[in-house]
Design a protein around this nucleic acid. Structure first.
Length: 271
DNA sequence: AAACAAACCTGTGCGC
DNA sequence: TGCGCACAGGTTTGTT
């Protein structure tokens, strides 16, 4: 999504902003988003964890979080908008385009903030943990993160204050690739196991990104062009409870609830 | 400190 | 065909 936005939005002026649903801009207000964006030009687009941050030539920045059901789409001006299109940005240029923020469940949000005061205006962004892709995560750093924590791996990996960017799907896939049970306690991992976890985090995240992400049967996640990704074809455990493990070919994938989240793993491959 | 449950919303798929 | 229920990619808050 960041890459798609970068290719369509960077360098373009936002001429007009429409907010159709106040909840999407609940951190501030519709007027704050409109005032903060109208007339500004997007200079770059970054990401930390699941937070997209667009820098503006005004010195402010736009944060977008998709939460569970958000999508960002770029379309030709005047195109038919999907249901639940809550924010529309009109982009200058030839041709002009519209950027749509679409979000059925309305958990997602957009907010204009001052990066110099992120501590107070966007505290959760300021308190985000290490992003393995954008910050880099070494074996030594992962060892330090696991050290002294008596937490299960699944809730630990999902904790955005510790490591940023891993969600429920990729957490299960990472743990399967690392051959570690989701309920393993972090500070009991041997060095070889930490190295496997480290390699799995990087492999799953970078491979999934290159594959365009995971588009499930409801086609909820798509890129800014509306195209789905293909990493769902490589899922080995997520949403495969009751089916044969693709790695060992023998055991059946088990579904449990761990860390309050649905968790799938192979009891034969993962220890 | 860590593990739960509930809350925030809407849509979909399933059993009956 | 329709109803009720379980469940979904995330995160915060309040209890145990």
């Amino acid at each position: 999504m960041r890459r798609g936005m970068a290719s369509f939005v960077v360098g373009r002026r936002i001429e007009r902003v429409e907010v159709g649903r106040e909840r999407t801009v609940r951190r501030t207000s519709a007027q704050a988003l409109i005032d903060g964006l109208t007339g500004s030009t997007v200079t770059s687009i970054g990401r930390r964890g699941k937070y997209i941050v667009c820098t503006l030539d005004t010195g402010d920045a736009l944060m977008i979080h998709l939460r569970m059901s958000g999508r960002v789409l770029v379309s030709e001006t005047g195109s038919q908008r999907p249901d639940h299109t809550h924010v529309v940005l009109h982009l200058a240029g030839t041709p002009t385009n519209e950027l749509w923020f679409v979000d059925p469940r309305t958990f997602g949000e957009m907010v204009v903030f001052d990066p110099d005061h992120a501590d107070t205006e966007l505290p959760e962004l300021a308190r985000l943990g290490i992003d393995p892709i954008t910050d880099g995560l070494s074996v030594a750093q992962l060892t330090a993160v696991l050290h002294g924590r008596a937490r299960q791996l699944k809730p630990l990996l999902l904790d955005q204050h510790v490591i940023a960017g891993i969600g429920n799907i990729y957490c299960d896939e990472i743990l399967h690739r690392a051959r570690l049970r989701p309920d393993r306690v972090a500070n009991t991992l041997k060095p070889a196991e930490v190295r496997r976890l480290h390699a799995a985090i990087h492999w799953i995240l970078s491979t999934a990104i290159e594959a365009g992400g995971s588009t499930l049967s409801d086609t909820q996640y798509v890129d800014v062009m509306g195209d789905g990704g293909s990493f769902q074809l490589d899922h080995r455990v997520y949403d495969r409870a009751g089916q044969r493990c693709l790695t060992c070919g023998k055991a059946t994938i088990v579904r449990t609830v761990s860390g309050g989240r649905s968790t799938c793993f192979c009891p034969r491959c993962q220890h």
